[in-house]
Every structure is written in structure tokens, then in C-alpha cells.
């Protein structure tokens, strides 16, 4: 589905992403982890077209995305959420979804009705999406006035409103309580059932390890390991990247002090 080959992005002398090779298969949940500054968010921004790559290629189902503008990549089927929630705060919950809405292929509305019409079928489908997010009774609230967890759910719904094939979640569990993480896990699994491929970038291991089909580990902009969640947990290279040395991984920092 998503294939990144030899992808690089340099900011001045900093190699944020360095000759990255990554393959996400159709229908899977792919977890991308790595220490702070390892290039995870830069990778998302490259796939979505916020940055242009220094070199390399980005392909979605064989289509080269590199020359497409960010909004065209939405039409191609890539959608995302942001690490720090970016909703349209002064618009209502409903309007947030209305802006991002795309008709499914085959049932497109006319140009005029897309911008100016208020079609009933679209109304109905946005309402269904709201109910999926548990925001059914808040459609007239301003997005900026929602609680934190609700804002996260709305952003997820907004990313789904464009009917993506692939969704990139940039640290969706940041700042969430453990109950909220469980709820998020259910939502991500539901997305998978709906046939959406998920690229999950996350620090919260409780979520990544439990939901991902495969996991890739980034460090210094390159993939240092890739495999099933269990394999990644036991991979010495990964432990080294996260904790600095392979000996004191079991207990983390306290052990290191003890020794």
C-alpha cells in the first residue's frame, strides 16, 4: 500500500529522515516507534506533503505522491491527525467534519452541490460518523469548547471524513488516560475492520504493542528494526536505541542507578 524508498529529508545539516525504506501492507496496523527526534513526525509530514523530501520516493498503491499537493493526497486516499490537536476551534463539530468530507468514489456530488448544496445523504453520513465518535449530541458545539478526549475523537473523525485508504495517526494517545487509551484502541481496531490501513506513530507502548500487526523502529531517521510486536520488544537493537545500553533494559533507569 504505502512504500517509502530511499526517502530522505535534511534540514540544513540535520538528517531528520535518512534513506528510509518502509513498506506498509494493505489492511494492516503498522506501528512506527522511536525515540524523540528519530524522524517519526517528519515521516508523516513527508507522506502528507507538508514537506517535500530531499530525495527518495513515496508511493501509494503504485502511484507516486511526491509531486502531489497536500490536498491532492487526500483525494489519493491519505489522511492524518496531528500530534498537537489541530481542529478548527471556532467552527462547530459538524462544520469540522463538513469541511473534510469527501464523497465515496461513485457517488460524487456535483461541483455546485459540493460547495453550496446541503445534501441529505451527506448530512446522514456525517451524523453517522459523529455517532461513531460519540459526539452525536454535540454537533452544534464549537470544537474549541470540547473536552480534550472529545477533541481527539473529533480529529479522528475528521481524518475519516475524507474516506481515506490510509490514515496516519501522529501520537493519538498523547496525554490520554489509560481508560481513554483503551477506548482509542477499540476505535483503531474498528478502523481496521472498515478496511482502512493505519500507520500509527506512538510513544505509548501499551497502545502500540497491543494494537499493531507489525512494528517498525526508527532511530536517526532510518529503520533499525521491523517485525511483530513480540520480536520488537525483545530486539536488543531497539532496547539500545531507547535505553542507551542493552544490559539495563528490564528495570529502566532505576536499575541503572543501582548498578
Amino acid at each position: 500500500m504505502l512504500r517509502l524508498s530511499n526517502l530522505s529529508k535534511y534540514f540544513g545539516g540535520v538528517r531528520a529522515v535518512d534513506a528510509l525504506e518502509l513498506n506498509v501492507k494493505t489492511g494492516e496496523i503498522f506501528g512506527l516507534i522511536g525515540p524523540n527526534g528519530s524522524g517519526k513526525s517528519t515521516t508523516v509530514n513527508l507522506v502528507c506533503g507538508i514537506f517535500g523530501p530531499t530525495s527518495g520516493s513515496i508511493e501509494l498503491d503504485g502511484v507516486d505522491l511526491k509531486r502531489q499537493a497536500p490536498h491532492q493526497r487526500i483525494d489519493a486516499g491519505v489522511s492524518r491527525t496531528f500530534q498537537n490537536i489541530r481542529l478548527f476551534d471556532d467552527l462547530t463539530v459538524w462544520q469540522n467534519l463538513w469541511v473534510a468530507w469527501r464523497d465515496a468514489p461513485g457517488q460524487e456530488h456535483s461541483w455546485f452541490s459540493n460547495w453550496f448544496g446541503r445534501s441529505l445523504s451527506r448530512r446522514h453520513e456525517i451524523q453517522k460518523l459523529l455517532e461513531f465518535s460519540g459526539l452525536g449530541d454535540k454537533s452544534n458545539n464549537l470544537a474549541g469548547n470540547l473536552a480534550f478526549g472529545e477533541q481527539r475523537r473529533l480529529e479522528l473523525a475528521r481524518a475519516m471524513a475524507s474516506k481515506p485508504k490510509l490514515i496516519l495517526l501522529d501520537e493519538p494517545a498523547a496525554g490520554m488516560s489509560s481508560a481513554e487509551v483503551t477506548d482509542l484502541r477499540q476505535r483503531i481496531l474498528t478502523m481496521k475492520e472498515m478496511g482502512i490501513t493505519v500507520l500509527l506513530i506512538e510513544h505509548v507502548m501499551e497502545l502500540v504493542m497491543n494494537v499493531s500487526d507489525r512494528i517498525g523502529v526508527l532511530n536517526f531517521g532510518t529503520l533499525i528494526a521491523e517485525g511483530l510486536p513480540e520480536e520488537i520488544q525483545n530486539n536488543p537493537l531497539v532496547q539500545k536505541a531507547y535505553f542507551g545500553s542493552s544490559e539495563n533494559t528490564s528495570g529502566g533507569d532505576t536499575n541503572a542507578i543501582d548498578q
Binding site: 496531528f82 481542529l87 476551534d89
Partner: peptide, 16 residues
């Protein structure tokens, strides 16, 4: 209004 509030988020929601 979405563009006025956050053009990056609007762009990432498919707005030209």
C-alpha cells in the same frame, strides 16, 4: 473559515 483558523489543518483535510 477553516482556512482562516488553521491553513495547515485545512490543507490536510483536503482543502485546496
Amino acid at each position: 473559515r477553516a482556512v482562516g483558523e488553521d491553513d495547515l489543518a485545512a490543507q490536510s483535510s483536503g482543502v485546496n
